[in-house]
Design a protein around this nucleic acid. Structure first.
Lengths: 266, 266
DNA sequence: TCACAAGTTGCAAAAAATGGAACAATTATG
DNA sequence: CATAATTGTTCCATTTTTTGCAACTTGTGA
């Protein structure tokens, strides 16, 4: 096990839930002798990969790492284009929007736009979620074949919340629907009271795929507003698909736009 | 030189200008034999610290790194509070806002809010800037003593743009003014046509300091709007200073709010 | 003050990184 | 299309780092 691998494993421990680590934390999480944890932390601190919070023993990611997200976003014109579309829609409707990518069976937000409504869903960056339990995740999974999805979800956990799918077959059924509709939707699935829509689009030249997503409170958003949101995302995504030459993209069908409360889980 | 140090040096090369690196780039930038550059890249790729773009030889930060910014932000209540204030002001005025921190003589944005006006300043995350040439940077530098500033700027470059300060003395004079006013301002200094205001606030418990900043187009923003922006930031910052017990904070003086075109460099 | 947990350091063995040069692959050029 | 030029990878013995254990130090709370 090289230092680099341990360093990477350590960095993976951080997310919006776990924002700092001590020697003991690292000892447990990476399952290494505490001597090594101590030295790893010291080395990473020396390199600027970590920093201590105040003068406590708690470590957080070093400041040099905070610019990296920008480099990642900047390296992808697909993400930039998707961000613009989502920002536009988010500004118009006032709800929180984000662009996310899939890594294995997880989706991570890469850009987010917090929304301006008083009642808005909090930002979702920095907390990878299972792909099969989210609108945005399913919009991305729907671009794979059923066989690939089955392989990906081999050791996934189902029914993580009361409204999330309970079996692989249920997921596959949902994906069939996503492929037919052209978008993913979720109704109070990941978070109670929160609905979401996601549309995926890719760039065949780089192999990248992103999902454009808007999340909003279930109760207060009318059907008309839902349609407006979806139309906005769909138009923007279609535009991107045209530019990148994404042939797998299917323009969402307005006739199937999700209505308030439309869900197979009610 | 440990791998970790090289890895960190490599990651430092990324910013919003330089979003991907090849073996040759790394060889030159880190001044190491290309054999090592090749192996470093491979090791970092293996650890997930980097990934290739498509199947090219170009590398960008790995996806595991994009969540780290969120962990950093989450580890600091100061950043969270500052973000809320800036978001509020940015939403109200429609201009781009961000929260930044100082590292040595550089400032990096940690959260940004792109603004909703048609004519807005683009996001500023991921591109560290010299502290002494920006409103936000000077608002942070002003919290140091002149001696500390002199030490920090020992090998800084001056006059990086026509309107940026030309000597250390000029910087010190500007900082004196910042300390008197309670805020930093810049007029078409870093970018032509762009003005900015920044207010710094700290948390004595953790030693952290952040700056709340709004950037806007010089031409179209009236005096009244400038005052509104500054009042918004100032009220929010004062609130934060009260909560953290920051005694070094000085509430900006409305009488000295910057007027359109008010600048010693005109 | 003591006990206990958390973190750090010394040491020899084991593993990984280094740099030079040969080799392979890719890209540009006539 | 062949050749040159550029870019990236692999081989090797040597040097350096990392590892795991245990002893040690520091800090915390009863």
């Amino acid at each position: 096990m090289t230092v680099l691998e341990n360093a990477a494993r350590l960095l993976k421990c951080f997310n919006s839930e776990c924002t700092d680590l001590t020697v003991t934390d690292v000892t447990e999480r990476l399952d290494i002798p505490k001597a090594n944890a101590s030295r790893l932390l010291k080395a990473m601190r020396g390199a600027g990969l970590l920093e201590t919070i105040g003068d406590s023993k708690r470590h957080r990611p070093g400041r040099l790492l905070i610019d990296l997200g920008a480099a990642f976003r900047g390296s992808s014109t697909l993400i930039a284009m998707a961000g613009e579309v989502v920002k536009e829609v988010s500004d118009t409707c006032g709800h929180t929007g984000f662009v996310s990518i899939r890594v294995g069976n997880e989706v991570s937000g890469v850009v987010d736009f917090p929304g301006s409504n008083a009642l808005r869903v909090a930002g979702t960056i920095g907390r990878p979620l299972p792909a099969h339990t989210t609108a945005t995740g399913r919009s991305l999974l729907a671009r794979l074949s059923d066989a690939e999805v089955v392989a990906l979800l081999r050791d996934a956990t189902f029914k993580v919340t009361p409204r999330s799918p309970g079996t692989i077959d249920e997921v596959l059924a949902m994906l069939t629907e996503v492929r037919a509709c052209g978008f993913g939707a979720s109704f109070q699935e990941t978070t109670l009271g929160v609905d979401a829509v996601g549309i995926a689009v890719g760039d065949p030249k780089t192999g990248e795929e992103v999902s454009l997503c808007i999340v909003f409170p279930s109760q207060i958003v009318s059907d008309a507003e839902r349609q407006a949101i979806l139309t906005g995302l769909a138009d923007g995504a279609a535009d991107i698909a045209f530019k990148t030459g994404d042939t797998r993209f299917k323009k969402p069908d307005p006739a199937r736009f999700p209505l308030k409360g439309l869900t197979s889980h009610d």
